[in-house]
């Protein structure tokens, strides 16, 4: 695990998202109704829609381009759509959001 402090919980709107730039593409960081924070790939596997612009409901997000719905916990597409987005571990320590970047930097480290 490689925890990096990315922002405060309140930097992410309630039932909303922000995005983080990384060397391997953008990561979407979501804050649910219950103040849980989830991180996934920001790219919808369907047509590349930015998931951080989707509507967050329950523990799911709807892609703004064609309404694919993904579970924030598993990264699996819901309903009849078949697809998977990468998920990344997060934790909240005293209102700060930490993101596990071990899988986000491997690409760079390997270079």
């Amino acid at each position: 695990m490689n925890w990096i402090d990315i922002c405060s919980v309140t930097d992410i709107p309630l039932r909303g998202a922000r995005f983080v730039k990384t060397a391997v593409g953008c990561v979407a960081v979501f804050r649910t109704d219950n103040n849980e924070v989830f991180a996934t790939s920001d790219r919808c596997p369907h047509k590349g829609g930015p998931l951080s612009e989707g509507i967050v409901h329950g523990k799911a997000v709807t892609c703004p381009l064609h309404n694919w719905v993904f579970s924030l916990e598993t990264g699996k597409a819901q309903g009849a759509d078949v697809g998977q987005i990468a998920t990344f571990a997060t934790q909240i320590i005293e209102d700060r959001v930490l993101l596990d970047t071990s899988e986000l930097t491997t690409g760079v480290a390997a270079e």
């Binding site: 990096i4 990315i6 922002c7 930097d11 992410i12 922000r18 995005f19 983080v20 730039k21 990384t22 060397a23 953008c26 960081v29 993101l99 970047t101 986000l104 930097t105 760079v108």
Partner: peptide, 9 residues
């Protein structure tokens, strides 16, 4: 972006 890790990396 709320953070830019590409620079850090």
């Amino acid at each position: 972006p709320v953070a830019n890790l590409s620079l850090e990396a």
